[in-house]
Design a protein around this nucleic acid. Structure first.
Length: 489
RNA sequence: CGGGAUGUGGCGCAGUUUGGCCUAGCGCGCUUGCCUUGGGAGCAAGAGGGCGGGGGUUCGAAUCCCCCCAUCCCGACCA
């Protein structure tokens, strides 16, 4: 086992040595992505893309169940559209790529590559909505988006990314706010139950708000290096975009009114989050509900006993497949040990080994990716057992992530000095500064100051904070909000 | 976008200081054959690169100079 670990470490940098190297090693060794020829762009390889397809499926199902329909709007957005909502332009213009000419001829109006679609969709909604009878409009789109970020990280922040953006229009504020919360809750439920990632739901501070939103809400997840990833956002846009794009309707009372809109999005960064929440020094670890392969079968044993082993492997394979499990058999010529390591690195939740001894005893060996445990299972009960095991692994992965988050969440810090001491202490120790629950007076100055002094930013104001904080961690005055602070991606 | 580092077969690297022993070497991987299979097997024979890209200096450049590009790390901006 010792040698085994050493040889692995040659391929994947240990998390404790350099977390970001570990992350980059892992996503490449697990064959999720490759770098594309254009700066900051990646190729989603089949293994990585299938993760996205499964996330998509989980989300899309819930969107449809709540009455939304998918549509597609163009990727090219006229420059003038961006100008119609002031904060929106200011927020996005620094990272907008432009199309300025076609076959050498300058376009009359530059076209931006969508960083998000509020503007085009607002334009279309103004045409489509005339009466309260036309509302609500509940549309989602699966698309790519462009944001030319200075610093890119595969999956977490790339110049082009894939996402889902929902855009809805409602008759009144109350209904729009309900929609905002309903979609935030869907994100929380999908991310927790499917990706096994615990999140804090809450409200963003004004400084962290989406450009052009009245209120922004988010789900925030803790990575294994203690940093935060915003895993989904939902915005109440008020009538700001309605006013910018003249989205008006005639209400029951014969008054012309502006609609209230929402937008909500989640992206392929969820893949990166999943890697950084569950992965370990062996590589990727995927939650069973999302993993493209749930069970990998590896027949072992000498050539002269191969036939019986393969027959048994087929039998078990078919029974698992019939039970609806995503199962595959690895018949490559590599040695068993090599395959064990390979599939562990790729994050497959359960491995089944079948050898001559198992055939004799009428059993298989099941190995768990999450704990490394090996279990002997009678063949007759294999299907039921494996199904139960996958559920247990899914649950265990969530519980482990929850426990990790609890271990690295700090609620006793009340001053900037204490916060700095805490961060310095973490740097001396395991390097995981984690999240700090702090009081905040609500001023931009304090928020800015905390960031400058510590590198920690406000993640969100949780709806259900574990404890309420009385004084602002920065100025010492009475706190208006209890916020999560941390470093973030 | 600023500071630092790196860029040599698929991957990891040596060679760059002091140009010529390099029409480039090593490990892994790859191909073929034999052999082997319960935690990264062994032997043998092979294939594969002109040194991130473009200019320049020189009799001669992976090595020196200039420009550009990409990636990583650290900061400022963000899903």
């Amino acid at each position: 086992m010792e040698d085994n670990n050493l040889s692995i470490s040659k391929e994947i940098t240990p998390q404790s040595e350099n977390f970001s190297r570990w992350y980059l090693d892992t996503i490449r060794k697990a064959d999720l992505m490759d770098y594309a020829p254009v700066r900051g762009c990646i190729v989603f390889k089949p293994e990585g893309f299938e993760l996205w397809e499964r996330i998509q499926a989980a989300m899309d199902k819930r969107f449809k169940e709540t009455g939304h329909r998918n549509a597609y709007f163009p990727m090219l957005i006229p420059e003038s559209f961006f100008q119609k909502e002031k904060e929106h332009v200011e927020g996005f213009s620094p990272e907008l790529p432009w199309v300025t000419e076609v076959s050498g001829e300058k376009l009359e109006e530059r076209l931006g590559l969508r960083p998000t679609s509020e503007t085009v969709i607002g334009h279309m909604y103004s045409k489509w909505i005339n009466s309260y009878r036309d509302l609500p409009v509940l549309i989602n789109q699966w698309a790519n988006a462009f944001r030319w970020e200075k610093r890119t990280v595969p999956f977490l922040r790339t110049s082009e990314f894939l996402w889902q953006e929902g855009h809805t229009a409602h008759v009144c504020e109350e209904e729009a706010r309900q929609e905002t919360m309903r979609m935030l809750e869907i994100y929380r439920e999908v991310v927790e139950s499917e990706l096994a990632i615990p999140v804090w739901t809450g409200k963003k501070t004004p400084a962290e708000r989406f450009a052009g939103a009245v209120d922004t809400y988010s789900i925030e997840a803790m990575m294994k290096d203690g940093k935060a990833v915003q895993a989904g956002t939902s915005h109440y846009l008020g009538d700001k975009f309605a006013k910018g794009f003249e989205i008006k309707f005639l209400d029951r009372d014969n008054q012309l009114k502006y609609v209230h809109t929402t937008s909500w999005g989640s992206s392929t960064r969820l893949i990166g989050a999943m890697v950084m929440v569950h992965g370990d020094d062996k590589g990727l670890a995927l939650p069973p509900r999302i993993s493209p392969t749930q069970v990998v079968m590896i027949p072992v044993g000498p050539q002269n006993k191969r036939a019986a082993v393969l027959a048994k492997t087929d039998e078990v394979f078919l029974s698992l497949k019939e039970a609806g499990l995503r199962v595959r058999t690895d018949l490559r010529e590599e040695t068993p040990g090599w395959k064990f390591n390979e599939w562990e690195m790729r994050g497959v939740p359960v491995r089944i080994e079948i050898g001559p001894r198992d055939v004799e005893k009428g059993q298989v060996v099941a190995a768990r990716r999450d704990t490394g445990e090996k279990i002997f299972v009678p063949i007759g009960g294999a299907v039921v057992f494996i199904k139960g095991l996958l559920d247990e692994i899914q649950n265990n992965m969530y519980q482990k992530a929850l426990a990790f988050r609890a271990e690295h969440s700090y609620t006793h810090i009340d001053t900037l000095a204490e916060l700095k001491t805490h961060i310095a202490g973490a740097e001396q120790g395991d390097g995981i500064a984690g999240w700090v629950l702090a009081g905040w007076c609500g001023s931009d100055d304090c928020e800015k100051n905390i960031k400058e002094e510590t590198g920690f930013t406000t993640r969100n104001i949780p709806f259900l904070p574990p404890v309420g904080k009385e004084i602002c961690v920065c100025c010492g005055h009475k706190s208006e909000h209890t916020v999560w602070l941390s470093r973030s991606y």
